[in-house]
């Protein structure tokens, strides 16, 4: 309803999709022991951008994604999504999220799982939209299958279809292909690139795979550990659509080498 006002529309269009200002996150382990998961994270993500959060284990990239989603609250700093709090995005049902574990309901069919966002938003289930999503992720014919009848890759496709059900303003992906084999993972990378190109949704993806980040992202935020922080950013100037040939291109190799060098720097030395 706010978009009906021209001045507010302009204000909405001007602001970035995500604005993170000096985010810090500490976890209290009890007995006065505190772990700093994130410190001084400041970043901006524009509308329609695909940004990858890349870093070693323990750099706080998943924590940062959970702060953006509203699942965690920052200890310090502010996270704004579409100009308001992440909780607002949740209550407006404008957020899509795909987890590392597919989080499909085992008692529900593929179609029922994809339709869950409609039910939780208390909207009538758009059957045509559900069928469209089933086709989008290449699962036509499996509408009535239950998750345990599907392979790991197929389950993740259902999870991605579910995250897109309500055409969200923001799509968050927390290593959605992390548990898959290399071949399936690569195939799903290309499929996700195609889906993203078709939907144009602002996407933030956590990954620890350099190749995955380069195949999908416009921009890669490289994170470092101890404490978790942003090390640097790398713009991915590879042409789209990115295909298997992209993997063999000289520019891909240069960017991959640079990222690996940055990631080596980001981890504390084992010798220390």
């Amino acid at each position: 309803m706010t978009n009906s006002h021209p001045i507010q529309v302009a204000a909405t269009l001007d602001q970035p999709a995500i604005s993170l200002a000096n985010i810090g996150k500490e976890f209290n382990l009890g007995r006065r022991r505190v772990v700093t998961a994130l410190t001084g994270v400041t970043a901006t993500i524009e509308r329609g951008e695909f940004v990858a959060l890349l870093g070693p284990s323990g750099c706080g990239k998943s924590t940062l994604l959970r702060i953006i989603s509203g699942l965690e609250k920052p200890t310090s700093g502010t996270a704004l999504v579409e100009g308001s709090s992440p909780e607002q995005l949740i209550s407006d049902h404008r957020l899509g999220f795909a987890f590392q574990e597919h989080a499909l309901l085992p008692w529900a069919t593929v179609s029922e799982n994809i339709a869950i966002p409609f039910r939780l938003a208390r909207r009538p289930i758009d059957r045509a939209r559900v069928s469209e999503l089933v086709a989008l992720v290449g699962l036509a014919g499996f509408e009535s299958a239950r998750p345990k009848q599907l392979s790991g890759g197929m389950r993740q496709r259902v999870a991605i279809a579910r995250s897109l059900a309500l055409a969200p303003d923001l799509l968050l992906l927390d290593e959605p292909f992390g548990a898959l084999d290399e071949i399936t993972r690569r195939r799903l990378n290309f499929e996700l690139a195609r889906i993203w190109a078709e939907t144009g949704v602002t996407t933030v993806m956590v990954t620890h795979s350099v190749d995955e980040a380069l195949l999908l992202a416009d921009r890669i935020i490289v994170m470092a550990t101890n404490p978790g922080r942003i090390e640097t950013e790398v713009m991915v100037d590879l042409p789209r659509p990115r295909t298997a040939e992209t993997l063999g291109s000289a520019r891909f190799g240069e960017l991959a080498t640079e990222l690996i060098r940055l990631l080596d720097h980001s981890e504390p030395s084992d010798e220390s």
């Binding site: 509203g70 699942l71 999220f97 309901l105 939780l120």
Partner: peptide, 12 residues
């Protein structure tokens, strides 16, 4: 993970 899913989907 299921609880997180219901949270981000704005479940009552």
């Amino acid at each position: 993970a299921h609880h997180d899913l219901f949270t981000v989907l704005g479940s009552r």
